[in-house]
Simulated scan of single mutants.
Amino acid sequence: MIKKIVNVLVLIPIGIVLIVLSVANRQSVTLALNPFRPEDSVLSVTAPFFVYLFLAVIFGLVVGSLATWFTQGKHRKRARIEASEAVKWHTEAEKHRTRAEAIASQAVLPSPGK
């Protein structure tokens, strides 16, 4: 519940800011990718300015996510190793438990000679 409230408190202001930016920056802008001939229409794109702003934000999110994912790789590897070791030790403990139960059940049974 608190996570939902925090998300609403964060996402609503961000949404409002993005809507305001979109309305304020509706002018068409040409992005020229050819530095020697900027008027070349093959390597230029014309779009409203807010599209470039959104693309820059999305690109930043993707680059930041990838950087975080790569830097946390050692922690994920360690977690995988520890999880496999935990499964190994759990199966070992189960094997010993069943063996101990079998030995205990044999010891409790009365001998047939009495």
Rank of each mutant, 00 (worst) to 15 (best):
K3N: 12
F50Y: 14
H96M: 15
L43K: 06
K77A: 15
A56M: 14
P13L: 03
G60S: 09
V62W: 02
V87L: 12
V57E: 02
A104T: 05
R37A: 06
A93T: 12
L21P: 03
R97Q: 11
L33G: 06
I16G: 05
L21M: 14
A86E: 09
P48G: 09
E92D: 13
I58T: 07
L61S: 04
P48D: 08
G64I: 01
I81P: 01
S65L: 05
V63L: 06
R76V: 08
I16N: 03
I2K: 15
S84T: 13
T71N: 09
T30S: 10
K3Y: 09
H75K: 15
K3S: 11
G60A: 07
M1R: 14
I19V: 13
A32P: 01
P112A: 14
I2F: 08
V62D: 01
W89A: 13
T68S: 11
A93Q: 11
W69M: 05
E94W: 06
Q72N: 10
P38T: 07
S28E: 14
G15K: 02
V42N: 13
F50D: 09
R99D: 13
I12H: 00
T68F: 08
A67F: 05
L109C: 04
G15P: 00
T98V: 09
V51Q: 05
A93H: 10
L66K: 02
D40P: 02
L18T: 03
V87I: 10
V108M: 13
S22I: 05
V23P: 00
H96P: 01
V42M: 10
A100S: 09
L11S: 11
V6I: 11
A56W: 05
Q72Y: 07
V87P: 00
N7R: 06
K3R: 08
A86G: 06
N34P: 03
L33A: 07
F59K: 02
V29A: 12
T30F: 04
A79L: 13
I16M: 10
V108K: 15
M1S: 14
V17H: 06
W89Y: 14
I58K: 01
